[in-house]
Structure formats: C-alpha cells, structure tokens
Computed example of a mutant assay.
Amino acid sequence: MAKLHAIVKGKVQGVWYRAWAQDLAASMNLSGWVRNLNDGNVETEAYGERAVLETFLEKLYDGPPLARVAEVETAWAESGETPSGFRVRR
C-alpha cells in the first residue's frame, strides 16, 4: 500500500476541484481525503496501489473543466494505513 500526498496549485478553488477529486478517487477505489488550504491551493492525501495512485496523480494535473492547474507538489510514502473511503475535509 502506498500513500500520495499532493498540493495542487493554480486556479483550483471555487471550481469544484475537491468534489471532482473525491469522485475520481472513489471511482479508482482509493481512500483518503482532499481539502482547500488558506493559500488558495488544494491538498490531498490518497492511499492505494502505487500504479493506481500514479494514474490519479496524472489526472490531478487536469482537474475539472474550470480548473487551471499550474503545479502539483508530491510526496510518496509506503503506508500500512488504510483509511476507509475518500472524503472532503473542511
């Protein structure tokens, strides 16, 4: 099990990015969370198989139609954790 932590930068708040990421992660059977940050970025942490997380990461660069992703900072780790579900954190 792997863990992907990502900070998505650009025009990613107010464009349904969190809901889109939640739907995407659920469709890929990933667990974790996504939330807005005070600096206008979006943070996400996802758990799953490394290959699936790599596909998830590729899609984070696209985002929903109104988003304009400028950069995605990532950190990878191995994880024994397996949170249930994928949720939007406030």
Score class of each variant (00 low, 15 high):
residue 1 M to T: 09
residue 2 A to S: 15
residue 3 K to E: 07
residue 4 L to W: 04
residue 4 L to S: 01
residue 5 H to W: 05
residue 5 H to G: 06
residue 7 I to M: 12
residue 7 I to G: 07
residue 9 K to C: 09
residue 9 K to Y: 10
residue 11 K to D: 08
residue 11 K to F: 08
residue 11 K to Y: 06
residue 12 V to F: 02
residue 13 Q to K: 04
residue 16 W to C: 12
residue 16 W to V: 08
residue 19 A to R: 07
residue 21 A to Y: 00
residue 22 Q to W: 13
residue 23 D to L: 13
residue 23 D to A: 13
residue 24 L to C: 10
residue 24 L to M: 12
residue 27 S to I: 10
residue 32 G to W: 00
residue 32 G to Y: 02
residue 34 V to H: 02
residue 35 R to S: 11
residue 37 L to W: 10
residue 37 L to V: 04
residue 38 N to M: 13
residue 40 G to S: 11
residue 40 G to L: 13
residue 41 N to L: 10
residue 42 V to T: 01
residue 44 T to I: 14
residue 45 E to R: 01
residue 50 R to L: 11
residue 50 R to T: 05
residue 50 R to Y: 11
residue 51 A to Q: 06
residue 52 V to W: 00
residue 52 V to P: 07
residue 54 E to K: 04
residue 55 T to S: 14
residue 56 F to C: 06
residue 58 E to Y: 13
residue 60 L to I: 08
residue 61 Y to Q: 05
residue 63 G to L: 00
residue 64 P to E: 05
residue 65 P to V: 14
residue 66 L to M: 15
residue 66 L to Y: 09
residue 67 A to Q: 06
residue 69 V to Y: 14
residue 69 V to C: 15
residue 71 E to K: 13
residue 71 E to N: 12
residue 74 T to C: 01
residue 77 A to N: 12
residue 79 S to F: 07
residue 79 S to H: 08
residue 79 S to N: 09
residue 80 G to T: 11
residue 80 G to L: 10
residue 80 G to A: 13
residue 81 E to G: 14
residue 82 T to R: 15
residue 85 G to D: 07
residue 86 F to D: 03
residue 86 F to K: 02
residue 86 F to R: 03
residue 86 F to N: 02
residue 87 R to E: 08
residue 90 R to K: 06
